[in-house]
């Protein structure tokens, strides 16, 4: 090499720079795809609509049965728990307490528990 003409090495160097530039572009495109993927997966994985729907189902239950425990209300409660487990793979439980006076209204304290293995949700809501 010692006696070789090295004047052309800048061509190699420029080639290298272009290659590095392309590499960075590829990385950026890769990352942007990940942004879309993580968002979509986050949305799919987080059971926002399931939890909302469960809350409304529990509110419907309270509208219907108040806080009384009888065979009918127990059956509906068992329906929600059993179908959640079987079809939604979610452990669900809820209980309705005696009405309390909350700023002039008689509201039932409801505790809702939801766990689908990825997301766990607990709430005490007055309805």
């Amino acid at each position: 090499m010692a006696c070789m003409n090295e004047d052309g090495q800048w061509i190699v160097l420029m080639g290298l720079l272009v290659a590095v530039g392309l590499f960075f572009l590829a990385l950026i495109i890769n990352q942007s795809a990940l942004v879309g993927q993580t968002t979509a997966e986050g949305v799919l994985e987080f059971p926002k609509n399931d939890i909302r729907d469960l809350r409304e189902a529990v509110f419907d239950y309270v509208d219907e049965f108040d806080h009384e425990e009888d065979t009918e209300s127990k059956a509906v409660r068992d329906d929600i728990i059993a179908i959640s487990l079987e079809r939604k793979n979610a452990v669900v439980n809820f209980s309705v307490g005696d009405p309390e006076d909350i700023s002039g209204r008689d509201l039932h304290p409801i505790t809702i528990h939801y766990n689908n293995g990825v997301t766990e949700y607990d709430e005490t809501v007055y309805y």
Binding site: L27, I28, Q31, S32, A33, V35, G36, Q37, T39, A40
Partner: peptide
């Protein structure tokens, strides 16, 4: 180094696929 530190590029304003997001 750059490829091993994803956080370095996390703040990079990407566009394209994240339009849906």
């Amino acid at each position: 180094v750059v490829s091993m530190v994803p956080g370095l590029l996390a703040g990079l304003e990407s566009s394209g696929i994240d339009y849906d997001a």
